[in-house]
């Protein structure tokens, strides 16, 4: 198997206006930086983006928001992006905020062939509006549906040409579940290796879920909240 493509440009071939995209990452940690840059260049619009967060004003998905390329965001937390809040409160951006665990579970369900599931998260809140409620063991649960995407775009630390992926630290977050839920899954990696170099016991995302993989470059890996402990003298 050889799923390696040369660049983000080649990896994102077929992305069109009005498509639904999943993008991995938590805050700015583990986001597919190269692909986001490419989406800005492609200038596709009317996108529905499924991502836990919406970046910050000038980085991550914030870059697509600035150019008004996103029609709808499906996220759990968007507190770090002032432009996002402005577009949402003005009604320029459609937003579906959903509990973070439901977001992860809905992506997993989309990848695992589970059309819908019941969860207590969000019962009795705005999130439950219009959703079927059923009691299990005396506790009310709401019906949540699976999510899938035309393209799922993830970022990994290492990958091989079969598409096997290993993530580093908490940059793993939503990447593995989103990788499962894309009709086409694109993985950008910091280090592309030959098959056999990755320990099969350590693979986080088996290559079956990945259709295109490329060696990324120039990772900025911006830190949102730099917090440190002073070194003792």
């Amino acid at each position: 198997m050889n799923k390696v493509v040369k660049s983000a440009t080649e990896a994102l071939q077929g992305v069109k206006d009005e498509m639904t995209l999943m993008l991995g990452g938590f805050g700015l940690c583990g986001i597919p930086e190269n692909s986001i840059t490419e989406l800005v260049k492609l200038n596709v619009s009317g996108l529905t983006c499924i991502s836990n967060n919406a970046g910050v004003d000038d980085f991550g998905l914030g870059l697509l928001l600035q150019k008004k390329q996103i029609k709808k965001m499906i996220s759990s937390y968007v507190g770090e992006n002032a432009e996002f809040e402005r577009q949402m409160l003005n009604g320029e951006l459609e937003v579906d905020l959903i509990p973070q665990g439901s977001l992860a579970a809905r992506c997993y369900a989309g990848g695992a062939g589970i059309p819908a599931f019941f969860t207590p998260a969000g019962y009795g809140t705005e999130v439950a509006e219009g959703k079927e409620v059923r009691e299990f063991d005396g506790k009310p649960h709401i019906l949540e549906h699976a999510l899938s995407a035309d393209f799922a775009i993830v970022k990994a630390w290492k990958g091989d040409r079969h598409g096997n992926l290993i993530y580093k630290g908490t940059a793993r977050n939503f990447n593995p579940v989103m990788a499962m839920a894309g009709k086409i899954t694109v993985a950008e990696v910091e280090i592309l290796v030959e098959p056999g170099e990755l320990d099969p016991n350590a693979i986080h995302t088996p290559g079956i879920f990945v259709q295109r993989i490329f060696q990324g470059s120039n990772y900025e890996k911006r830190i949102e909240q730099l917090t440190t402990t002073p070194k003792e003298a």
Binding site: C29, A171, L226
Partner: peptide, 17 residues
Amino acid sequence: PYEGDEDADLINAGKQT
């Protein structure tokens, strides 16, 4: 982390290193 040891790939839910 100590100053200089921070890792962008290791954060908490508050996005702090």
